[in-house]
Structure formats: structure tokens, C-alpha cells
């Protein structure tokens, strides 16, 4: 079963980490990713919501500066993982959480997964 682990945290806090703090978290996460190599799919870290633009779709699409929703904690990134069941997905999330404390992970089963379509 494929799951998305959606990473929520306060972007002000995360984006004011010093270079050293940031590097330390990334280093710990790299170790976890290595350990979970067989289960880890693609992952992404998102720029702050201030860099976001929203396209409202109906009736006539409108482009709005900013994120879709103003929230206290923002979607800052995501992982795609391939595991047996929710229990295992939660275990992965716990391991990631130990490397990168603060905020919350939303574990969301994936309904349709389309791999990279770009020409290589």
C-alpha cells in the first residue's frame, strides 16, 4: 500500500533554523531514509507558503497570491512510502519524527500514483 506522509509544522520556526540546525535535521533524516530505503519513494520539501500561488478553479479560474488555506501549521513537505499497512506507515512516521521533532505528520493512503512522466 502506498501512503503519503504529509509534513506539517510552523514554517516561521522551520525557516528560521540556522544553517547548522537545518543541516543537522537533514542529516538525521538522511540516515532514516537510508535505513528505510526499501520503503521510501519520492519526497519533497516545499518552499514557505509566502512563495505559493493558488488557482481557484470555478467558474472562471482566478489566480490568488498565497496558499490555499491560512493555517497555524503549514504543509512543508511530503514523503511517499510503500508499506504493508497503516501500522507500518505509522512506524515510518515515528522514525521520521524522531529525526525531525515538532509539528505533525498526516498519514494519507494514496489512491492513484503516477510516476515521473518526464523524459529522462
Amino acid at each position: 500500500m502506498l501512503y503519503a506522509i504529509l509534513c506539517y509544522n510552523d514554517e516561521d520556526t522551520v525557516w528560521s533554523w540556522t544553517k547548522e540546525e537545518d543541516a543537522a535535521v537533514m542529516g538525521r533524516l538522511a540516515v532514516v531514509r537510508q535505513r528505510l530505503a526499501g520503503k521510501m519513494g519520492p519526497s519533497a520539501r516545499l518552499l514557505p507558503t509566502t512563495a505559493a500561488t493558488t488557482l481557484r478553479k470555478s467558474p472562471e479560474p482566478i489566480v490568488i497570491d498565497g496558499p490555499f488555506a491560512e493555517t497555524k501549521e503549514q504543509l512543508l513537505g511530503f514523503y511517499v512510502i510503500d508499506v504493508e499497512n497503516l501500522e507500518e506507515a505509522l512506524d515510518v512516521a515515528r522514525q521520521l519524527g524522531a529525526a525531525n521533532p515538532g509539528g505533525a505528520y498526516e498519514i494519507r493512503p494514496i489512491a492513484l500514483y503516477q510516476p515521473d512522466q518526464r523524459a529522462r
Binding site: D12, W15, S16, P48, T49, T50, I64, D65, G66
Partner: peptide, 25 residues
């Protein structure tokens, strides 16, 4: 510098459609 960037991000979140605040940040 970090503090100035933090304040600019704060302004940008409050005034999301101001191109000059985007430019400053």
C-alpha cells in the same frame, strides 16, 4: 539580515498581493 528577512516574510504574509513586498523579500 535574518531578522530583516523574518520581518519581510511577516509583511508578505499580511500583504500577500503586494509585488514590491515580494520583491523586497
Amino acid at each position: 539580515c535574518d531578522e530583516a528577512i523574518r520581518l519581510a516574510r511577516l509583511l508578505l504574509r499580511l500583504f500577500q498581493t503586494e509585488p514590491e513586498i515580494m520583491g523586497l523579500t
